[in-house]
Design a protein around this nucleic acid. Structure first.
Lengths: 134, 134
DNA sequence: AGAGATTTGTACGTATGTATG
DNA sequence: TCATACATACGTACAAATCTC
């Protein structure tokens, strides 16, 4: 599965492989990835290299690591819809303080609506034209 | 500066220290951080540990690494304002493909407006009160 | 309560490669 | 050619948190 002679770094190859297994549904949301030890055995890679792959997927917001339970495919929870009539909307990664205060997982950006801030995995913004078509 | 006996992990202590130096303006946008070797000497930490700190700041979108020039405080470039009359706005980290196609740096999320996608460090959304005739 | 197994977290060391100036 | 600086990848050891017996 991993080609040590490839131009592509091994940790990226493994990240690609795991990402593909998630995207395909083989590893559905909530499911646990193989443990680091298992991945070592399956791939022949060093544990440090395995962990770098995991870091990549964490930064992408694809997985969450729960110590010492394992590494899990992120589940999408309830999304609150916030109505926005006017303002400026931007997004960025949260500061550590914002991460703490709003309890934001790794790899999850924040949505900024003027002065308001929302965790992007729990809030979607609804921009109306005139009246919502409900 | 780094307390090896602290409960807080050393790589997080260093990340905190560098983040503070950036926030204070001591390391302004565009400036180069000390090299890994310099940080090793200054902190007494192992290079691997130094690099973990750097990774933290990269994931936060605070810095960019240009191999082999150095590590630099991210500069905010021109921000295009995109007018949005209606739709649903969300944000998430980009996929690797999106990163390539849109040339998005590390630690930069994307803004999704229905089917449209924008790099969050180059685009801000302007939501109208009364929409123009689309 | 205790022991042991499992799994991730932290931190060190070492070697070599890649890219730029 | 040489020096600098980041990148990759291996290895080792121990710690922390949780679960099971």
């Amino acid at each position: 599965m991993i080609d040590p002679d490839s131009d592509r770094a091994r940790y990226l190859q493994l990240a690609d492989a795991l990402r593909a297994r998630i995207a395909s549904g083989e590893l559905p949301p909530g499911s646990r990835l193989p443990s680091e030890k298992t991945l070592e055995q399956e791939t022949g890679l060093n544990r440090s290299t395995i962990r770098r792959s995991i870091e990549v997927l964490r930064a992408e917001g694809l997985i969450v690591v729960r110590h010492p339970h394992g590494t899990f495919v992120r589940e999408q929870g309830e999304v609150e819809v916030v109505e926005v009539a006017s303002g400026t909307v931007t997004a960025r990664m949260p500061t550590p303080e914002e991460r703490r205060q709003l309890v934001i997982g790794e790899g999850v950006p924040v949505l900024l609506v003027d002065e308001r801030i929302y965790a992007a995995d729990r809030v979607a913004l609804r921009v109306h034209q005139q009246s919502p078509t409900n």
